[in-house]
Amino acid sequence: MKSSVTSATNLPKINRRRRLVKWETVIDHSVLILGSALMLFPVLLTIMTSSYDKLAFAKNGLQFGWSDKFIENYNKALFEPSGFSGTIDGMTMLSNSLILGLGFAVGKIVISMMAAYAIVYFRFRFATFSFWIIFTTLLLPLEVRILPSYEVIQSFGLTNTYTGLIVPLIASATGTFFFRQFFRSVPEELVEAARIDGAGPVKFFIDILVPLSKTMIAAMFIIMFVFGWNQYLWPTLITTEEGMFTLVRGIKNIIQSFTDSNAIPEYGVGMALTIITMLPPVLIVVFFQSWFVKGLTESDK
């Protein structure tokens, strides 16, 4: 009884204090809203400009408003063959980008999981040493080794192939590192229980380690897919046939090819293609977001 009385008399006070606190939340939120507006504004401008025809952009630059060319521009961007040879449309580039992104992500995950598995579970000589060797390749990103990489791919005749596009980028020190840390946190007893249950190395990997790592795999997949999708330098080097172009490299190509012929570049279509390029990574992050957070913060044990 006594406590309920005191809490009742305290109530208005607490409420008043709460109202004061609310000012802070207002400030917090305005900062956040301002920040996201700032981040979203260029995207918004791009979307809006993509509804104008090329002349509007050539005359007045980016547009803040809405025009009637939206569907036409997107239609063109996706389905109208363009480019120097006139053989490539947006859909081809989209599928090329998807193949690159998926191949890149899946390949990286498979390779780095297997590498981490070997390093953590098989006590071969120099295991730690080889891990650090792998780790130091972080110091050698593609940009540093681009000439030798190109030489190798070119001498194998792999230019303008998906293999040439994906394989040189697949080895991943980051992936190996993350999976190594994760595998090391898997209790030793689980391995032993599996050994007693008659699971060999391959069975243990497939039946136990892979299912345990699924949130981790999802997180890696998102990072790697977006990373692969956004590759620009390597596809530019390795693909010379327009049929192999990815979206990221195709945007520039659309604008450039028209510039060369002294016409006004198809800015509206270019903007539309930019938006199309952004969509798949955004969708993947949106759909896998909860997995992503889970994979990086908690382990399923």
């Binding site: 209790p187 007893e189 689980l190 032993e192 229980a193 599996a194 050994r195 007693i196 249950d197 008659g198 699971a199 136990i208 299912p211 345990l212 699924k214 399923d300 044990k301």
Partner: peptide, 20 residues
């Protein structure tokens, strides 16, 4: 012999159940 071939079963301190 491998643990699996020794015809034994083991119960671990932290149970070592497969979480998934």
């Amino acid at each position: 012999l491998d643990p699996a071939d020794r015809d034994i079963a083991m119960v671990f301190q932290n149970y070592a159940l497969y979480p998934h």
